[in-house]
Design a protein around this nucleic acid. Sequence first.
DNA 1: TTAATAGTTTAATAATTATTAAACTATAGG
DNA 2: CCTATAGTTTAATAATTATTAAACTATTAA
Lengths: 107, 107
Amino acid sequence: MSKAIFKLHAEIFRVLSNPLRHEIFHRLAEREMTVSELVEACDAKKSNVSQHLSLLSTYKLVESRKEGKNVYFSVSYPELAQACQLIDTILKDQLRKDYNLFEGGVV
Amino acid sequence: MSKAIFKLHAEIFRVLSNPLRHEIFHRLAEREMTVSELVEACDAKKSNVSQHLSLLSTYKLVESRKEGKNVYFSVSYPELAQACQLIDTILKDQLRKDYNLFEGGVV
DNA sequence: TTAATAGTTTAATAATTATTAAACTATAGG
DNA sequence: CCTATAGTTTAATAATTATTAAACTATTAA
């Protein structure tokens, strides 16, 4: 396995390594949403959400369709979203104990 | 699901988002290795590998045992390593087509 | 007890990434 | 046309992260 492949794979992890981007991806894995809906759900700035969506799109993790004034986003590969949720589950189940790193039992 | 949880999950993705760290984790998922073996396998600087291992350890993704002059590292949760490999596989299978982003068919 | 090997830590620099506000584009309705 | 709403882009600043070299610690063996 070559450096280039590790780099490519790591790159996808990087895309999901920003908390807001991770949240956006997670929410889209549950249902299609407009930018405004995401802005409200995530309690974030519109321009910020838009930029994160743009990066997620660049890496084809999400896709969008325009309908009137709204743009609806959804995950491109449900399989990938599932795999990410699997990781999230493993983390929740298995790291909960360990993480006194993270201010007192946040999980 | 709270902000804090997204942050925690994103943090693990961040740990695996550095190419060298990703490579190290991937190699350790295959077998236990010493720091020197990793340095050679990854063709990287010893201090750099050591620092990445330290971060991986902090997040409990890897663990180590000392034997004489050597320190042997291995993955802590094979389940997590498997889930990461699942993501890697999905990426390889599904994104290959799309990635003309990445200099001419690297995957 | 010295030299060699294995690994870690520190500290500085370089490189990336995230966030914000402001300017911008597009669409729909009055 | 004018205004409001939805979203994007740009550009600047702030914050994080990665890499390197050099100094350091620990262990083994001569």
